[in-house]
């Protein structure tokens, strides 16, 4: 999940949380910083990590708990998005993280970087889809805030704090996720030369499209510049949305898979490039990684 290391020479792949605790404890004791990695699918955050050891989370893999009726699921951080999608899809559900990048990426990296995607506005950002987690912080403490239930305000919200902290406060080991039912009807349209004002109104209007995405067609095998629109819901809702959409421009149906391409080629620049190291942010870092051994340098933090 992180940029190339400066001088990485060793890679360790802990196969249990206890082993992860040992790795962090050793790193603290020997002051040898760690570069945390999932599937190593993610773009660089813009800064090199000053570390000699790479810790891969890929062995903390698999779904440990899934009750479809509760629409909740727990999995290891190294579980891939593809595995998550396959398991939930079998029950007509999904965890609609659908982040920028591809499905070979891990759940842990998606949450650690809080990487959203083209559907985040409508289906939820990573911060909204994580119910709780388990992690090992920079003091080698095992921490498990939140829980598996969909509503929970017990205790201070370390789940929110660790989500999107780019592995600089704790190494995520398990994620408890909120699932949703997949829409019964799900269709996508390419609108070339559409009416921008109408599409803007449509995106904000009562039909609640899953996405209205302005993009170039060439990188997706389509012509010109235009909008990709995804509609989801019950049949009546989608039909009614489609009728309104017709007034926005010439529509051509496209396969849902086009969004995989969108996620791969239209990713915006990383928010990690401009990390604000405010006094409060420095204090957070000092509390959870006092030795500076977790991804040092990644977020442009001073040496």
């Amino acid at each position: 999940m992180t940029g190339a290391p400066t001088t990485s020479s060793v890679t360790v792949t802990p196969t249990s949380v206890d082993a992860m605790v040992d790795v962090v404890r050793d790193a603290v004791a020997t002051t040898r910083p760690l570069r945390i990695a999932g599937a190593e699918q993610w773009p660089a955050a813009g800064h090199p990590v000053r570390a000699t050891i790479t810790v891969r989370c890929s062995a903390l893999r698999g779904i440990s708990h899934y009750t479809p009726g509760d629409l909740t699921l727990s999995c290891g951080a190294g579980t891939t998005l593809a595995e998550l999608d396959e398991a939930t899809g079998a029950n007509g559900q999904w965890c609609p993280l659908l982040p920028w990048g591809d499905d070979a990426g891990t759940v842990g990296a998606t949450i650690a970087t809080a990487t959203a995607g083209p559907f985040a506005e409508r289906l939820g950002r990573p911060r909204q889809l994580v119910l709780g987690l388990e992690a090992v912080d920079g003091r080698a403490q095992r921490i498990s805030p939140g829980g598996r239930v969909v509503k929970n305000v017990a205790g201070f919200d370390l789940t929110r704090l660790f989500t999107g902290s780019w592995g600089t406060l704790a190494i995520l080991t398990t994620l408890h996720l909120r699932l949703r039912a997949r829409p019964s009807v799900d269709e996508s349209w390419w609108i070339n030369d559409g009416d921008a004002a109408r599409l803007h109104a449509f995106a904000r209007g009562p039909h609640l499209p899953l996405a209205v995405h302005r993009t170039d067609g060439a990188s997706k095998g389509l012509d010109g510049e235009g909008w990709l629109v995804r509609l989801g819901g019950n049949r009546a809702a989608v039909e009614s949305a489609r009728e309104t959409l017709r007034g926005c421009g010439t529509m051509a149906p496209v396969a849902t898979e086009i969004w995989d391409r969108v996620r791969l080629v239209d990713a915006p620049s990383s928010p990690a490039l401009a990390w604000p190291w405010t006094p409060l942010a420095r204090r957070v870092r000092a509390q959870f990684d006092p030795s500076g051994i977790l991804n040092p340098g990644l977020l442009g933090d001073p040496e």
């Binding site: 809080a114 959203a116 950002r125 911060r127 305000v153 201070f156 919200d157 370390l158 929110r160 704090l161 989500t163 999107g164 902290s165 406060l169 928010p271 990690a272 490039l273 401009a274 990390w275 604000p276 405010t278 409060l280 942010a281 957070v284």
Partner: peptide, 24 residues
């Protein structure tokens, strides 16, 4: 006096940590 946000443009989610902190 500080301003907190969700960190969507970069930064720890300090607003997420603050909301629900019960005045502490």
């Amino acid at each position: 006096v500080v301003t907190l946000d969700r960190g969507d443009e970069g930064g720890y989610d300090l607003l997420g940590a603050f909301v629900g902190s019960e005045g502490c």
